[in-house]
Amino acid sequence: MRITSKVLITLLIVVAITACFSLITHLSNESQPVGDEIPARILISQTPLSTPLFVAKKLGLFKLHGIDITLIPCNGGVECMSMMTHGKAQYATISESVAMFNSFRDTDFSIISTFVTSDDDLKLLALPRRGFTSIRDLKGKSIGVIKSSASEFYLDSLLLASGMKPTDIERVYLKPDKLIQMMKIGKVDAISSWEPWGYRAQATMDVVNLGFQGMYTLSFNLATMNRKDETSHERSKRILAALQQAITWIQDHPEKAKAIVSDTLNIENNQLDWMWRDYVFRLSMTNVLLANLQLQARWALEHNLVEGKQPDLRSILDRSALQAMQDEVVGQ
């Protein structure tokens, strides 16, 4: 039986309409907001490491995944963690070093996912005009560090790698936003800190980095207070789903992502370019994180920075929300 041209055209139109309807339905299902919104408060460190959260907020991805989000700025992971444990929010962005130190005092919190890593975020900066060209030149000198943080672990790792002892230098504990000023006026001879302070230091004075790239890989993580109820689990799962979507968007649109961060933190594109190349954005919970936590815990005990027995650091890693989110993505 021959099919007339008119019948063939009609069939093609029907097929095209069906395909379009299926595509629209699929896209609608992918971006359809989730049921009732769950309120969530996240303490967020004001650093480009927090990019996935800034992007998720800007693009409305938290709302898309059923989260009524409030982002509360804080000055570094130490402050974020302290505020969370005092009930200011359910979540906080912290490095693994901050998690390790707090695990000796309180195990009623968990890391639910790493969302970015960097092997060059921390730096040991000094002023070359004062004759500092290598870390060995700092023997007997004062170094500004942020207590109980990645800043302190990084400094001691550099000293060990250079054949120096922790007692070879004087450490001066400072808030992150005081480091540059204290070095500039000569109150400390060098500073150990993360970005954006490294960039801000070199933007205002001539500095030399006495550290080594790759000596330490920083992980930035989302932590929460332990709550074993269904709402808390669902909230964490939705937040991670929003961050996963944000990370995919960041990888596809790096320049637009940098523009969001630049506007949010009021920093220049040059500063972001300085740091961005070292960032790896990815949701994960790997054995590398556990190994780093255990290594840093032994270091803290050996240097009398903490008291008591080493806790079981596996107890502060909870991948249940991450696994549930990933299972849902696979099942779609």
Rank of each mutant, 00 (worst) to 15 (best):
A92P: 01
M84K: 02
S113Q: 06
V172A: 02
N29W: 13
V207C: 09
W194N: 10
P33W: 09
S236G: 08
L8W: 14
K139Q: 11
S219K: 10
S5V: 12
I9T: 12
H86G: 00
E152I: 12
I69K: 03
D168N: 11
Q32D: 05
N221I: 03
I67L: 13
T133Q: 14
R129C: 04
L322S: 03
L12D: 00
K57A: 13
C20L: 15
G163R: 06
Q271E: 15
P176Y: 13
T224S: 07
H86D: 04
P311C: 07
L59S: 01
S157C: 01
H233K: 11
L49G: 07
K175L: 14
L8N: 09
V14T: 11
D119W: 03
F109N: 01
D312K: 08
R282T: 11
S50N: 12
S149L: 11
F21K: 01
A19G: 09
S118G: 03
A257M: 08
S22I: 15
E307Y: 07
V78T: 12
F115C: 01
L49Y: 01
T4D: 13
C20V: 15
V172I: 15
R277Y: 13
S162A: 14
V207K: 08
L283I: 07
L283V: 07
N304Y: 11
R319M: 02
S5K: 15
D68H: 08
P311R: 07
L158D: 01
V34E: 13
H65V: 04
I111D: 00
I250Y: 10
M183A: 05
W276Y: 14
L265S: 06
Q213V: 12
S142G: 01
K175I: 05
A300K: 05
S157G: 02
F132Q: 00
I185K: 07
S103D: 08
E152L: 14
N221W: 04
S31V: 13
L23H: 03
E234F: 02
G76M: 09
E195M: 10
P73I: 09
L305G: 02
Q90P: 02
L174N: 01
I44P: 00
M225A: 10
T70E: 15
F220V: 08
S97Q: 10
Q323R: 06
A161I: 00
G87H: 11
P73T: 08
M100Y: 09
M83L: 15
S95T: 14
I24T: 09
V306M: 04
T204V: 14
E37K: 14
L210E: 06
L125W: 07
K228E: 13
V280N: 11
K309I: 00
K309T: 04
F281Q: 03
N287W: 00
D108R: 12
M183K: 04
A56R: 03
H26P: 00
S148H: 14
S262W: 02
L222D: 01
T248Q: 13
A150S: 15
I112L: 06
S28W: 12
